[in-house]
Amino acid sequence: MNDGLVVQLLASAVLFGTPLLIAALGELLAERSGILNLGVEGMMLVGAVSGFLVSQRIGGAGWTALLVAVVAAGVVGGGMGLIHAFLTVTLRANQIVSGLALTIFGGAIGLSSYIGDSQHLTGQAARHQFEAINLFGLSDLPILGPVLFHHTLFVYGSWVLVAAVAYYLYRTRAGLHLRAVGEDPAAADAMGISVTGYRYVHTVAGGVFAGVAGAFYTLALSGNWSNGITAGAGWIALAMVVLAFWRPELVVVGAYLFGGIAALGPNLQARNVSLPPELFSALPYLMTIVVLVLVSSAWARGRLNAPAALGTAYMRGE
């Protein structure tokens, strides 16, 4: 029962959806503060390569190495988020172009490739990997067991993250201030909330999340580094925020849906279904377009819920 195609597909939907989930949660925080960051793909790639580099080079037990690697990926991602924050918040540069610059800087032809190449990481077998954990002994349950409870700590951590972000956003004073900054920075400013501070903190947080999400690829999913390993997942994570109406609880749904679509190709190929692999590879991108169109069409417009100040710089008195 636990080996059926559907069960495996659902299990890998959770697996492939996890990096999308983490990256989208981070981007959601940044966008809630009014900062659009198109650099997710670049930050993920740099996080992926940095995490892998650290886990390969560091000595000691597997767990400490992996922990340090994930922290390193987060720090590097956060650093890239800081560049974006400086350009868009302090210098009021165009957010779209700045985010693209971040992706070009970090992406498959940039920093991540430089690190991977100069440290000879391509083709190295991983020394440490996150192992699947039988959570509370539940992974023997039929269907639910393999789908939900036979995963790495990374996956369980992402669930905690969703709850934490949702709680932060809806139940804390800082979350309320964050939403105010994203909706009406002038009003927030008048209330004494630091628009600059909130935008900096949450753009950097978005970078940290993206870096950690990237590390998932090298430390929990594939077990090695190859150039451009995220293959556009950063862009799908960006779309995920729109599809989830900027709500963390809905990001879970979208992430696992797209995780499932991404997993479809490998799973069917393993069962010798002979369709062009390019078709399966294209499916997540095509589906993103289809769902974006559905979400943005008149049917959903009333409930879209985008932060009103998203993408705009704020300057007091302007």
Binding site: G42, L87, A101, I104, G107, G110, L111, Y114
Partner: peptide, 13 residues
């Protein structure tokens, strides 16, 4: 490898 993309990104910044 990757140096040129990095320089391009920095130019854009």
């Amino acid at each position: 490898q990757g140096l040129v993309g990095m320089i391009e990104g920095i130019i854009l910044f």
